[in-house]
Design a protein around this nucleic acid. Structure first.
Length: 425
DNA sequence: TCTGGGGTCCTAGGACCC
DNA sequence: TCTGGGGTCCTAGGACCC
């Protein structure tokens, strides 16, 4: 057999955020590097060298600060516009290898390789790695298999191998590979399922593969049985080639410093609302419901915890910043309680719909709806051209004392020529 | 002192209807 | 006074992903 039916590659960028920082700062190549989450809170990307020093994924920064100082680990605040930009370049490159591509996250994509001969798959994978590295500077790992879950598993092993590519199509090694994968590293098996499986003596992907369908169906849900079937090589999760528009839009941030006053919460909620409204306008969507939530730190056990959320159904579909802010602030007042040190606030727009479905509401309370639409367009245009928040509304505040911390920013902007890396012949 | 942010999907249970 | 069974729709919360 030359052609197997399903051939799916998972291409995953290695330590993606770290790799992006390295592009613009070659002096940190081969050095231990970490990138921190918003607010410099947690470690969310680590170079191999940092992993070897024992830095764990998702660990709070203050807990690893000692190791960082001791080993001179380079630290960066996250720079999402940079990573987004590099991600687009990587995905564009991948599309050349297969137009049937599902962009699964900022740093990984599934490719349909069904048109490639079985015997050529490994070499094809090598080519992808080579070209992506050459064109974008980003190193990748590739797993190729007959289902998404298996290609994830193959990728997991590929990351640890020097070759960087593992092909499981027609491979006699599948079971050997699955034996190496711990149950909690299987795609689709999270904390709860891990607990359950381990209790039932299922400790590896291989053991899960060999459980009877009946048992899995009886004891887990559709998710569980899908994952197990996929490990057996039965495709249950299809490739989503068409990028669906999002159904919800959430914007939230932790504060750089704890917030107590309603005024400051108002500024934050207003800012988040403006950002969310801009996002859905760019995607050509409207919303019907807005949720506002605030909370104190769940980690400070010595203080009372308070978290609350409330939503409001809007009288009509909209993406008008001013209207959304107005409604959000009314809700915020309802849930705000004096005397707490708030750690985070955010909003969620849900029930998003395509703007084409939007029917002009006769009872719209926004007077001059057309004018307002033009105003929004003008704001978006200005902000794209002159930088985010070039144009805002007064309610969002100017000082933003609550704003996030970014003490390790590399300040790289891919739109800025001076910062482009120099090429030496 | 300091602990991210943004998504999707599934399910159980309530409300409502005939 | 006795008091059924089945269906749909919606939502909150949980689990999972990166």
């Amino acid at each position: 057999m030359i052609y197997s039916k399903n051939k799916i590659a998972l291409v995953d960028c290695n330590s993606f955020y770290v790799s992006c920082e390295r592009l613009f700062n070659p002096s940190i190549i081969k050095k231990p590097v970490v990138v921190l989450s918003n607010n410099d809170g947690c470690v969310i990307s680590r170079s191999t060298e940092a992993k070897l020093l024992g830095i764990k994924m998702g660990e709070p920064y203050f807990k690893v600060e000692k190791i960082v100082k001791k080993n001179d680990i380079k630290v960066f605040s996250s720079n999402y516009s940079l990573y987004g930009d590099i991600s687009r370049r990587v995905m564009k490159t991948l599309k050349q290898f297969s137009p049937q591509i599902e962009i699964y996250s900022i740093d990984e994509a599934f490719l349909n390789l069904s048109s490639i001969k079985d015997d050529d798959l490994l070499e094809f994978g090598n080519q992808i790695r080579k070209i992506v590295l050459k064109w974008t500077g980003i190193p990748t790992s590739i797993g190729i298999a007959s289902t998404k879950t298996l290609s994830k598993a193959a990728n997991h092993i590929a990351k640890k191998e020097k070759s960087g590519v593992i092909n499981l199509i027609n491979s006699k090694e599948i079971d050997k590979i699955l034996e190496k994968i711990k149950i909690n590293d299987v795609w689709g098996v999270g904390r709860q399922l891990t607990k359950f499986y381990i209790k039932n003596k299922i400790n590896t992907a291989y053991q899960l593969k060999n459980m009877s369908n009946n048992w899995i169906k009886k004891n887990t849900n559709v998710f569980g049985s899908r994952t197990a079937m996929e490990l057996k090589g039965v495709s249950c999760i299809s490739l989503e080639v068409h990028q669906e528009k999002r159904k919800n839009c959430c914007v939230s941030r932790s504060f750089g410093n704890k917030v107590t006053r309603l005024e400051e919460l108002k500024e934050a909620i207003t800012t988040h609302c403006l950002n969310a409204a801009e996002k859905i306008r760019i995607d050509g969507q409207t919303t019907k419901k807005i949720t506002v939530f605030i909370r104190t730190s769940p980690f400070q056990k010595d203080r009372n915890y308070y978290a609350n959320a409330k939503d409001v159904d809007l009288p009509f579909e909209t993406n008008d910043s001013i209207e959304l802010v107005k409604q959000a602030l009314i809700v915020l007042k309802c849930i705000y309680k004096n005397g707490y040190r708030y750690q985070k606030a955010g909003i969620i727009l849900s029930g998003l719909k395509d703007i084409n479905i939007y029917k002009k509401n006769l009872f719209s309370t926004i007077s001059n709806e057309e004018k307002r639409g033009k105003l929004m367009k003008a704001i978006d245009y200005t902000n794209i051209k002159y930088g985010r928040n070039a144009l805002s509304i007064a309610q969002a505040g100017l000082k933003k004392k609550w704003n996030i911390k970014r003490q390790h920013s590399s300040k790289i902007d891919t739109a800025c020529f001076e910062l482009l890396p120099a090429v030496r012949a």
